[in-house]
């Protein structure tokens, strides 16, 4: 008997599906929305949004007295005094017990109110933004893409990516959205 791979590929060949025509792409690939729309739509999903000019000042206001995970590669002036910064190596338990995590992002999407992390500098491995119950994410205005297609163009699919649209939520009880399940229950987005 042939192995599974050979047999499945043989079955596919035997089905003789005729080639499909060219794929129409008449949808909008670009959007008009900018930072304002992004802020509005992030807030729609009950994330807290601030437009800030002085990031360190805002971080001081939000984080002083807390134990916050700081992935490698954050700008030095974001690591403000009065915060207990937790740096790698961190165990699962360390992350679970932290008060929160501070990151930047790889891109953001105005149409959908989404931020995207790619585990790059200032973001760290995926667990860092998952276990702490509070996530502060700093988004630069030039990182905001108007549409989903524009954002995907900016991203490298070979990196581990996490698209985040608001805090953790569920629609599983009577199909209504409720915020706060396993992921961070509070998401605070700083646009600068």
């Amino acid at each position: 008997m042939a192995d599974a791979r050979t047999e499945i590929l043989n079955r596919i060949r035997a089905a003789k599906v005729a080639p499909a025509g060219p794929t129409p792409r008449d949808y909008r690939r670009t959007g008009e929305g900018g930072v304002e729309l992004f802020a509005e739509r992030v807030a729609d999903y009950r994330a807290i949004v601030h437009a800030v000019s002085d990031v360190p000042a805002k971080l001081r206001e939000l984080l002083v007295g807390k134990r916050i995970v700081a992935p490698a590669g954050l700008p030095a002036d974001w690591l403000v005094d009065g915060v207990e910064w937790l740096t790698e190596p961190l165990s699962t338990e360390d992350l679970d017990q932290a008060d929160g995590v501070l990151t930047n992002c790889a891109a953001a999407i105005a149409d959908t109110g989404t931020i995207v992390l790619d585990a790059g500098a200032g973001q760290g491995r995926r667990a860092l933004t998952l276990l702490p119950d509070y996530h502060v994410c700093v988004v630069r205005t030039d990182q905001v893409a108007a549409s989903v297609p524009e954002a995907l163009e900016r991203l490298d699919p070979l990196r581990p990516l996490t698209f985040i649209s608001g805090p953790s939520a569920t629609s599983d009880i009577e199909l209504n959205r409720v915020e706060g399940v396993h992921g961070p229950r509070t998401l605070e987005v700083l646009i600068t």
Binding site: Y45, T112, L161, I164, S165
Partner: peptide, 11 residues
């Protein structure tokens, strides 16, 4: 939803 809360991509 305009976008679901989390989408993960890994390679």
């Amino acid at each position: 939803e305009r976008m679901n809360p989390y989408t993960s991509v890994w390679t």
